[in-house]
Computed example of a mutant assay.
Amino acid sequence: MASIAVYSVKGGVGKTTFAVNLAWCAATISRRETLLWDLDASNGSGFLLGIDPKKKRTAESVFEQERKADKLIRKTDYDKLHLLPADESIRTLDRQLDRIGKKKRLAKLAEGLRKEYDRIIFDCPPVMSEISAQVMRAADIVIVPLPPSPLSARALDQVVEEVRGSGKGHPPILPVMSMVDMRRTLHREAREANPKWPVVPLASAIEQCAVERKPVGAFAPRSPAARAFAQLWTAIERKLAKG
């Protein structure tokens, strides 16, 4: 099993869209048993997969000893892809983790799912918090979506600092340029400055994910956006294979 975190300290960069589409690629292209674990209280991953939260707010209860994660996991419309959805209760999770005092609680929970899943993908909240620190300790790789802008470069520096602060043996970071429009000078310059970074283009098909409530590969499989996510997933699998 490998755990992949999709994380940014800056909102509006496509983090949840990345998490959903990469989870779909893991399940559909690689045919791996995949769990998408939403840790963002907005439940964006559930929305994009067409899954509405249950009325009872229980997402944070999985971190209590008496509640098992598999009790909250829900099936999606896609074979081999499951979702552990978020809800408003996640907003209190930082306080709960502080009270529990277990720095690797999330890592232990993920390890307990090893028999059921080949890949766990974390959709992280866009803030530096105890939740994100726990994710860094659980992840084998951290994916950081970065639109081409000076603010994004600053956000990457903050992520690097946080990941390195998670302790020895911290996971590798894979920056990904998102919302790229090569007609724009700033975007071309950013691409030239970071030629080895994977690229996901600015595309109407990606925006339609929120309308269709589906991963882009499910409704526009031949689009440049679907190909970009598939190529990104291939790059992630290769990086994981190298260890």
Results as ranks from 00 to 15, higher is better:
residue 2 A to N: 12
residue 2 A to V: 04
residue 3 S to W: 02
residue 5 A to Y: 01
residue 7 Y to P: 00
residue 11 G to T: 11
residue 13 V to M: 15
residue 17 T to G: 06
residue 19 A to H: 06
residue 19 A to E: 05
residue 21 N to F: 05
residue 25 C to M: 10
residue 25 C to T: 03
residue 28 T to S: 14
residue 28 T to K: 15
residue 28 T to I: 07
residue 29 I to A: 10
residue 31 R to W: 09
residue 32 R to Q: 14
residue 33 E to P: 00
residue 34 T to K: 01
residue 35 L to V: 09
residue 36 L to P: 00
residue 36 L to Y: 08
residue 36 L to D: 08
residue 39 L to Y: 03
residue 43 N to W: 04
residue 43 N to S: 13
residue 49 L to C: 13
residue 51 I to Y: 12
residue 52 D to V: 05
residue 54 K to L: 11
residue 55 K to A: 14
residue 55 K to P: 04
residue 55 K to T: 15
residue 56 K to M: 09
residue 61 S to W: 11
residue 62 V to D: 02
residue 64 E to P: 00
residue 65 Q to R: 13
residue 66 E to K: 06
residue 68 K to Q: 10
residue 71 K to M: 01
residue 72 L to S: 04
residue 72 L to P: 00
residue 74 R to P: 00
residue 77 D to L: 13
residue 81 L to V: 10
residue 83 L to Y: 04
residue 83 L to C: 03
residue 84 L to A: 08
residue 84 L to H: 03
residue 87 D to M: 06
residue 89 S to M: 02
residue 99 R to E: 06
residue 101 G to K: 06
residue 104 K to C: 00
residue 105 R to G: 01
residue 109 L to S: 00
residue 112 G to M: 01
residue 112 G to S: 02
residue 115 K to D: 12
residue 115 K to F: 04
residue 116 E to W: 02
residue 117 Y to Q: 05
residue 118 D to H: 13
residue 119 R to M: 07
residue 119 R to W: 07
residue 119 R to G: 00
residue 120 I to D: 02
residue 122 F to S: 01
residue 122 F to N: 02
residue 123 D to S: 08
residue 125 P to N: 10
residue 127 V to E: 15
residue 128 M to K: 15
residue 128 M to Y: 15
residue 131 I to D: 02
residue 131 I to K: 03
residue 134 Q to A: 09
residue 137 R to W: 03
residue 140 D to M: 02
residue 140 D to K: 05
residue 141 I to M: 11
residue 141 I to G: 12
residue 142 V to Q: 04
residue 146 L to D: 10
residue 148 P to H: 10
residue 149 S to K: 13
residue 149 S to Y: 12
residue 150 P to Y: 14
residue 150 P to Q: 15
residue 153 A to T: 12
residue 155 A to C: 05
residue 158 Q to N: 12
residue 162 E to L: 06
residue 166 S to P: 00
residue 166 S to H: 02
residue 167 G to P: 02
residue 169 G to T: 09
residue 170 H to E: 03
residue 171 P to L: 05
residue 172 P to L: 08
residue 177 M to P: 01
residue 178 S to K: 10
residue 178 S to T: 13
residue 180 V to F: 10
residue 181 D to A: 13
residue 181 D to N: 15
residue 188 R to G: 00
residue 190 A to R: 12
residue 191 R to I: 03
residue 192 E to Q: 11
residue 193 A to T: 07
residue 194 N to H: 12
residue 199 V to F: 09
residue 200 V to F: 12
residue 201 P to L: 07
residue 201 P to G: 08
residue 204 S to G: 10
residue 204 S to T: 15
residue 205 A to C: 07
residue 205 A to V: 14
residue 207 E to M: 11
residue 207 E to L: 08
residue 208 Q to L: 05
residue 208 Q to A: 12
residue 211 V to G: 07
residue 212 E to K: 15
residue 212 E to V: 02
residue 212 E to H: 15
residue 214 K to Y: 14
residue 215 P to I: 11
residue 219 F to T: 04
residue 220 A to N: 11
residue 222 R to Y: 12
residue 227 R to N: 08
residue 227 R to W: 07
residue 229 F to Q: 08
residue 234 T to G: 01
residue 236 I to C: 10
residue 238 R to T: 11
residue 238 R to C: 04
residue 239 K to A: 13
